[in-house]
Amino acid sequence: MNLKKGVFYFKNPIFISSFAAAAGEKEAAGPLNGRFDRIFKDYNFCDKSYEIMQAEMQLFTATKAVEKANLNIEDVDVICGGDLLNQCVGTSYAFKNVNVPFLGFYGACATMAEALIVSCVFLNFGHVGCALAVSASNFYATQRQFRFPARYLQPRPKTAQKTATAAGAVLLKRKDFSNIVIRGACVGKVVDFGVKNASNMGAIMAPAAADSAIKFLKGIGKKVEDFDLIVTGDLGRLGAYIFCQLMKSEGYFLNSKYNDCGLMLYGKNIKNICCGGSGAGCSASVLCADILYRLKNKKLKNVMFIGTGALHSKATSNQKATIPAIAHIVWFEGV
């Protein structure tokens, strides 16, 4: 049901049947250690390429999520997914040998939220019975594509964030016995506040996140107090602070209910990697390795998951163009 432009409330909630997460060595050394289904070793010189490595990780999470629901990957009706690489090659290569309809999209770091929303819409209208939402990112491949190669000695600004080598997959069904459902969603709009610095992702994405959050809360008529956890995708330390300040200026006090996936993934190691984690795989893996687990164990009831993405490329950054951002919201509920 469409409440307001871009805000959806699903009368018949969409069930989350199963989920799986994978991460690289550095990400697995964080506070979520032991929650990942598999830890992928960091790239070494014997591996073929970063892209292939990411595709393997993505296929693994997809297969694992489907296995957990006692299904075969061929039983899935549609796969919605994406990653940060050009032309979504990581995801396309992951599912090239899988005989399932596939939709690939690019929403920068908000890809997981976007994939979940599209899957929900398919399921809500009854076009498919079960859908798979996947997302992944690889540090080396992303670093090379958007900035400089990872091994290049360069001064890192304090605001810089580290792209996480991680992946997550969620299997959604129209009817299931699961206790986690998706109640609502919000499709964000592109927001540009004139920041040009590509290493200051937090400041770029915070206004988009605040904009979508306010629109969503007004649209569904809920308050911040109604949610147990409000989590943003990858704003980092600085972005999280700006987001809280922006929400505060509009009269929404987040207090201790708020957290950020980029901070949750690295925990105390955060000082070694500047501002926090980022990337399409960051929010996806934290969602699948932590938030959904807590919802399943009934430690959380209502969760607002805000996927945030900065929509830029190396060309636009070099042209000194301002960087727009987007934020999509998915509302999880434990029943």
Binding site: F193, A203, P207, R237, L238, Y241, Q245, L246, S249, E250
Partner: peptide
């Protein structure tokens, strides 16, 4: 849209946040 923060003032606001948040050693 976030109304309190003007688009023109946002960069200054972000810089002031950076100064308070990322002081560190």
């Amino acid at each position: 849209m976030v109304s309190i923060i003007n688009k023109n003032d946002y960069e200054l606001f972000a810089k002031s946040c950076e100064a308070t948040m990322l002081r560190g050693r």
